[in-house]
Amino acid sequence: MNIFRLAGDVSHLVAIIILFLKIWKSKSCAGISGKSQVLFALVFTSRYLDLFTVFISAYNTIMKLVFLVLSYATVYLIYMRFRGSYDSENDSFRVEFLLVPVTGLAFLENYAFTPLEILWTFSIFLEAVAIMPQLFMITKTGEAESITTHYLFFLGLYRALYLANWVWRYHTEGFFDQIAVVSGVVQTIFYCDFFYLYVTRVLRGSGKMSLP
């Protein structure tokens, strides 16, 4: 555990809590892509199956449980509790275009051809693209509420901090997880355009981010 890894996990937790509280308090999921949230719940489900097979640390177990509970609770809020405010018309990204390639790649490129390892690889590749429906929805509606942009900022920052964590671990302990690093780079690159808009529009300009 190093400072980048801890900051990354905290940033990830902050992002998930920001989104959950936004929907819960505003009693609305307008502007939020339910598809992305389902994909994130799927990422955590397929990645954290080792909750039942190995105990790494209390921190590891607790964080996995928190991420799982909050992601499913968010999906519940969107599709059940506040489904009236769910904007299904603009949340039209074809997730099968993500799931099929990611599944295929997980079978091709993995560390071991075992169910747990393939599911872990699937979750790594899926996480890299899971935000696409949300980013697509923002380009379609042409705007995003400021709270949503803060959610996306911390979500994008978390994997960027993990990249720093992997650089640190490579130099201090020779650790190198090729699949996670390559996927993490791709994932962070997808946020670059958003980061630019976030800094230039949200932090400097008006609260709302409206795309050109």
């Binding site: 990830h12 080792d50 964080m63 996995k64 560390y111 071991a112 872990w120 190198f176 997880d177 699949i179």
Partner: peptide, 10 residues
């Protein structure tokens, strides 16, 4: 591959 089967990260 540099298989890292120690999944200590989230």
């Amino acid at each position: 591959h540099t298989g890292q089967c120690n999944k200590d990260e989230l």
